[in-house]
Design a protein around this nucleic acid. Structure first.
Lengths: 246, 246
DNA sequence: CGAGCAATTGAGACAAGTCAAAGCTGGTGG
DNA sequence: CCACCAGCTTTGACTTGTCTCAATTGCTCG
C-alpha cells in the first residue's frame, strides 16, 4: 500500500493521467499542478464532505468510488453523482458543497487547493478545456440518468445501471464490454436504490429476477457476470445503440 | 415584429446580452461573435432538430422556450432540458444532436456556425469561461431535477416545477419571487408530465389539488398566481432554503 | 356553430412501496 | 476453532400511489 501511494505521487505513472482533468497538460503545466496537489484517502463509507460544508479543495478521483447525494428533510435520499477514477470533484469558484460526498470504497483523491487551482484554471487553457469537456460529459450522463429515473421500470433501471457500470469499467481498460465479462458491483443494494430512485427491496427483487432469467450470473453478492451483453442491453429499454456514444 | 427582429440584431440592445454565453465578452470579442451569428425563428411546437440529426450550429435562446427530450422505442419520453432565454443550445465539438429539440413557444435563436464558434471558443477565454460556468449551472439544475424525478411524490413534483418556473421567471427580471406574483405556465400539461416523469392525467389531478387547497390560483389554464410563496415551497419537500442558491 | 385540441374527472389495475421476518456472510472474541 | 453478532440481503404479504383506459368538459379558431 505504501509503495502504491509513492507511485501515485508521480504524475507520469498516475493511473488516471490520460483521462483526468490534467490529461491535456503539457509537462510544464503538469509541473504546476504537481506543486499544488496532495493526496487524501478515505475508508469505505466515510463522508468526504457534507452538503453545506465549506470545501477548500477540488480533486480528481484516483482510485475507488465516491458518490454525490441529496437528502430531503424526511430522509429520502437520491444519488446525483457517481464518481469513478478520473472523475472530477468540486466546482471552481464555489465555496460551499451542495451535495453530500461519500466514499463508497477505499478512496484516494488527488486534491488541489481551490484558490491556486482557480488561478491555474484561469491561466491554463488546456485545463479549462478539459474541465469543460468533462463537465459536458457529466451533463450528458445526468440527462441519460434523468430518463432512467423518470421513465424506466424497476427492471429496466437495474439493467441500465449494470450496463453503465460494465461500460465504464470496460472503458477504463479502453475496451468495450464483451459477452462473458465479469465485473464487481461497487455499490450496496441500498446505494443502487439511491442511484435508481427505488427501495432496496425492489432492487433486490429485480436483481434476483434478472438472475433467474439468466440475464446475469452472480458470484456472492457483488461479482456479476454478463453471459450475453446484448441481452442485458435489450432489458434497458434503450434503442439498439444504447444511447450516447462513449 | 419586424422592428423587434431588427433590434435583436444589435448585440448591445440584445435582451440576453448580460446572461448568455457572450455576457463576459469585451466589445471587440462581441464583434467577432457578431460576424458569425445569425437568427432563426420557430413557431410553437416546431422541431428544431431531431436526435441523431447533424447539427451545424450552436445557439443562444433569445426569446421563447425550447425543450430537450429523449424518447424510448415504445414512445415513453422524458424531457431532459428546458431552455429559457439566455440558455445555450448545442455542444461544441459535437456533430450529432443527442436529443430532440423542440420549440415550445415562438422561439428565436441566436445561432453561431459550429466551426467558427469552436475556433472562437478556443481563442477567447471569456467565452470558454462563461460556457463552463453555464454548463456547471446546468449540471446543478440537472441534479436538482434528478432528486425530483427519483424521490418526490406527484404533488411535490408539481410544486417543485412551479417553484422553479417562478424563480427563473423572477430572476430574468433580477428579482426574487414574491407573494401574489403571477406568471405564465409556458408548458402544456403533457410537457409538464414529460418534465416530471408523470402522466398528463396525474399532472392535471395534482394541479387541481393544489388549486383546491389554495396553494395556487389559476386564471385560464396557463396563468398561475401564488398567494403565498412559502406555502408553495413547503409543498416541494425541499428543506427551507429551497436547495441551490441562484 | 361545430371541429379539434387541451384539460379534467372517474373507475379499476398494477408496479413499486411498506412493514416484517428470515437468511447469509464475514469478522471478533471466548 | 467455533459461536455469535452485526450488517447486508433476500423473500413474503399487504398497501398504496400512480398509471391506464375511457368518457366528458371547456377553449379557441375557422
Amino acid at each position: 500500500m505504501t509503495e502504491l501511494l509513492l507511485e501515485e505521487r508521480n504524475c507520469e505513472s498516475c493511473p488516471i493521467r490520460h483521462r483526468a482533468v490534467c490529461s491535456k497538460c503539457e509537462p510544464d503545466e503538469l509541473h504546476l499542478l504537481d506543486s499544488i496537489k496532495y493526496y487524501r484517502t478515505y475508508e469505505a463509507g466515510q463522508p468526504v464532505v457534507w452538503a453545506g460544508d465549506e470545501m477548500d479543495f477540488v480533486a480528481s478521483v484516483v482510485s475507488g468510488i465516491a458518490t454525490l447525494s441529496q437528502t430531503m428533510e424526511d430522509g429520502r435520499t437520491q444519488m446525483v453523482g457517481l464518481l469513478l477514477p478520473s472523475d472530477f470533484l468540486g466546482r471552481p469558484g464555489r465555496v460551499t458543497a451542495p451535495y453530500d460526498v461519500t466514499s463508497n470504497s477505499n478512496l484516494t483523491l488527488c486534491c488541489f487547493r481551490r484558490r491556486p487551482f482557480e488561478k491555474l484554471l484561469h491561466d491554463t487553457p488546456s485545463i479549462a478545456q478539459r474541465l469543460l469537456e468533462m463537465t459536458l460529459d457529466e451533463l450528458d450522463a445526468a440527462r441519460q440518468w434523468m430518463l432512467i429515473l423518470g421513465r424506466k421500470t424497476a427492471r429496466e433501471k437495474i439493467a441500465s445501471l449494470l450496463t453503465i457500470i460494465a461500460q465504464r469499467e470496460a472503458s477504463l481498460h479502453k475496451r468495450r464490454p464483451t459477452d462473458g465479462s465479469t465485473f464487481e458491483l461497487p455499490l450496496t443494494r441500498e446505494a443502487m436504490a439511491d442511484y435508481l430512485g427505488l427501495t432496496l427491496e425492489t432492487v433486490s427483487r429485480q436483481v434476483s429476477a434478472l438472475k433467474r432469467d439468466g440475464i446475469i450470473e452472480l458470484e456472492g453478492k457483488r461479482l456479476v457476470t454478463v453471459p450475453d451483453f446484448e441481452a442485458l442491453m435489450a432489458e434497458t429499454g434503450d434503442d439498439a445503440d444504447g444511447g450516447l456514444p462513449v
